[in-house]
């Protein structure tokens, strides 16, 4: 279930570039969600990864953000967790 609308107030990061992890960097957007992805499996799963990031942001109440993601083969649970941690850090004043 989506949370109430939240705003990214500062740049934040979460995760790492270790194997099976993903590094997420989030900052204020320009009116919508923009995702820049670099992944070891970009060709096969790039769109899926972006969808997981986008859906998780919306669940967290974020509709305006710029995201840079460096993926090292993270499963969905890790992608979601890193996005949530990043949002939590980014919305803190």
């Amino acid at each position: 279930m989506a949370k109430g609308k939240l705003e990214i107030k500062k740049m934040a990061t979460a995760g790492s570039v270790e194997s099976n992890d993903i590094l997420i960097m989030i900052s204020q957007g320009e009116g919508d969600i923009e995702i820049e992805l670099e992944s070891v499996v970009e060709k096969q799963f790039g769109e899926d990864i972006k969808n997981v990031i986008r859906e998780t942001l919306i669940e967290e109440g974020i509709t305006d953000a710029k995201v840079i993601a460096k993926d090292k083969g993270a499963l969905d649970f890790t992608i979601k967790a890193r996005v949530r941690a990043c949002v939590q850090r980014g919305v803190e004043a």
Binding site: A14, F77, T78, A81, R82, R84, A85
Partner: peptide, 11 residues
């Protein structure tokens, strides 16, 4: 600590 809690919960 915050990121680990979220990751464990998600897992």
């Amino acid at each position: 600590k915050d990121a680990a809690r979220i990751l464990v919960r998600e897992y």
